[in-house]
Structures are given as structure tokens and as C-alpha cells.
Write a protein that binds this DNA or RNA. Structure first.
Length: 320
DNA sequence: ATGGTTTTTACTGCGTC
DNA sequence: GACGCGGTAAAAACCAT
């Protein structure tokens, strides 16, 4: 199959680009920015406040020089769900040096050996902790392979943690649940990756991912709306190096289609791909169906069918 | 398991560069 | 003649029952 080669090559190109902002404005589709001082998340385009009352995780004091900062700060690094112990536990250096860099005496060295051993034992104490350690590694690996932003990794980690807490693991593989977590997290964050894309970077088969994903979502009561076709548009458009204008048109087409209910039951990815292609046509930018089908991993036939439907839906609007 | 729907595969014909 | 595009039929994948 020569096709699979072109596919993987294409994947690798995609890795370099990213979706820097996790969220986009629900009103105008613009990018949003966090305003920590007011605890709000605001759209840069239309000014819509997307989220209020968020927690300011910054310090509550102000420091005017580094000395003052040292004196006022009472905290260490922020906790993160991306480490199996949330980054809170102690690490003991492997070098036999003290804080000033001097070598340790032999009795001191022995003591440090023992401490290290016990520290390690406590750190990854039971199977759950070890489990988590491995899973988070997997999550991180897959997330970066897919070019997913930090917040998605965080979410994926949280989902995995919850799955572990609820004893969802027995009978399922760590890889499977990790993958499902990433898939769910990406969708929740509005930067979905198709099941196929996920499968490419995972160590488990598609069917298992899908099964595990459904299971986890159900058991955890996760709220994941069906993927919005629009959320694929920016990624496809930039892969094809299309203008802002066509990207906007693609969105328009999709919104119109949504109102008309043309899209029910059809795959969101296909719809998005078709919209991108149709938009390129409308703005006289050169793209081929083959190219779109490449970046979207959708057959040309599907693109054809969908984009006809999209244009039809658009047709009988202007009269009104 | 089954039947209905959607997507993919594979192939063919048409027009253009 | 290669390429982009359109259509079709049959196979495969998917989903709900």
C-alpha cells in the first residue's frame, strides 16, 4: 500500500504545527485570551467574556526585585497533574555531593544510598502509582506526536487519574485507557483529532480505543458533544496554506449547513474537509480534492458528496 | 446477528493543459 | 498522456436494534 506511506509522511509534517490556543470564541470563532487580573477569559475579536470567575493562580503579592521575591514567596513549583505525584514529592540527587558541591564522607554516602532507596520506594509505592507513571508517559508521548497543546495533556491526565480512581482499569490496558483519555481530552478542548489520527500514534488498535473511549466516557459521565466540524477547519486550512478568507467561508458553509440540518449522521471530518475544499473553490484558491483528502484523511468521493450538499444548502439561502 | 446508512475502493469517462 | 474532476457500483465499516 503506497497510500499508507504518504499518510504517515503527512502526519509528520503536521506534528510541527500546533493549535496554540485551546479555546476559540463560541460567538465569532476568534481566539480568546485569559485576563488573570479580572479572572475572565475574553475573546480578542468581539470582546465576549467566555469564562468568568476563573482562579488566579499567580501570587497575591507583588515583588519589585528578585530579593523581595525570594522573601515573599512561600511556595514551590505549581502542582501539575502531568506528573504522577503532581510534582510534590522530594527528589534526591544521584550525585554524592552536598548543597555546596563538596563530596560526601563515606558514612554520609551510605546514608544517602539508604535514603535514596527508600525515597524511591515511597515515591512509586503501590501498583497504582507505577501504573500512573507509565500512563502519563504514554499520554505525553501521544500528545506531542499529535501536536496537542499543554492544556489537553493536563485534561487527559485528569481523565486518566479519574479512571484509575474509579477502578476502571482492571480488564483494560494502560495504553488503551491512556489513548482514550487523550482522545477525549482533545475533543473536550475543542481541538479534536480523528480516531484515525489517534490510532496512528497509539500502540493499540482502533477498535480497542473506540471501545475503551466509550466505556470511559460512560463510566465517568464525561460530557463530550459530537465533534464540531468547524474545529477541524483551521488545521486543514493551514495545512493547505489557504487564506483567512477561505477559512472564514468554510466556517460559513458549515454554519449554514448546521442550520439546515444537512449534517446529521455524516462524519464531522468529512464535512469539514468538504467545506474547506468548497471554500477554496469559492475564493479561487487552488486546491485539489486529492490534497484535501490527504490532509483530512477522507476519501475524495466523500468530499465530493459533501461539498455538493454544502453548496446546495447555500444555494437557496440568498433568496431570503 | 441483522439491516440500514455512510464511507471507501476501484474503475470509467470527460475536458483541459 | 497526465491531471483534476465527476459519477457509479460494489465492498467495507459503522450503528442501532
Amino acid at each position: 500500500m503506497s497510500d499508507s506511506q504518504t499518510r504517515t509522511r503527512n502526519r509528520e509534517q503536521e506534528e510541527t504545527e500546533d493549535q496554540s490556543a485551546g479555546l476559540s470564541c463560541p460567538e465569532c470563532g476568534g481566539s480568546v485570551v485569559a485576563d488573570d487580573e479580572h479572572g475572565e477569559t475574553v475573546c480578542t475579536d468581539c470582546g465576549l467574556v467566555v469564562e468568568e470567575d476563573s482562579v488566579d493562580r499567580g501570587p497575591e503579592w507583588r515583588a519589585f526585585d528578585s530579593k523581595e521575591k525570594d522573601e515573599k514567596s512561600r511556595v514551590g513549583a505549581p502542582t501539575t497533574n502531568m506528573m504522577h505525584d503532581k510534582g510534590l514529592s522530594t527528589n534526591i540527587d544521584w550525585r554524592d555531593k552536598d548543597a555546596y558541591g563538596n563530596s560526601l564522607s563515606s558514612t554520609q554516602r551510605k546514608k544517602m544510598q539508604r535514603l535514596r532507596k527508600w525515597n524511591e520506594r515511597f515515591r512509586t509505592r503501590d501498583s497504582k502509582e507505577r501504573n500512573l507513571k507509565q500512563a502519563l508517559g504514554e499520554i505525553d508521548r501521544m500528545a506531542s506526536a499529535l501536536g496537542l497543546p499543554e492544556n489537553v495533556r493536563e485534561t487527559a491526565s485528569v481523565i486518566y487519574r479519574r479512571a484509575l480512581d474509579e477502578d476502571l482499569l482492571p480488564g483494560r490496558s494502560i495504553e488503551g485507557v491512556s489513548t482514550a483519555s487523550v482522545y477525549a481530552a482533545a475533543r473536550q478542548a475543542g481541538v479534536p483529532r480523528s480516531l484515525d489520527e489517534i490510532t496512528d500514534v497509539s500502540r493499540v488498535e482502533k477498535s480497542e480505543i473506540a471501545r475503551t473511549y466509550r466505556y470511559v466516557v460512560r463510566e465517568l459521565g464525561l460530557e463530550v458533544k459530537p465533534a464540531d466540524p468547524e474545529s477541524y477547519v483551521p488545521r486543514f486550512a493551514s495545512s493547505l496554506e489557504l487564506s483567512e478568507e477561505s477559512e472564514r467561508r468554510a466556517r460559513q458553509l458549515l454554519q449554514n449547513a448546521k442550520e439546515k440540518g444537512v449534517h446529521s449522521g455524516k462524519s464531522p471530518v468529512g464535512l469539514a474537509a468538504a467545506a474547506v475544499y468548497a471554500a477554496a473553490l469559492l475564493t479561487n484558491e487552488k486546491t485539489t480534492q486529492a490534497a484535501v483528502s490527504e490532509v483530512a484523511d477522507i476519501s475524495e468521493v466523500t468530499i465530493r458528496n459533501r461539498y455538493h450538499e454544502l453548496l446546495e444548502a447555500e444555494q437557496d439561502l440568498p433568496v431570503a
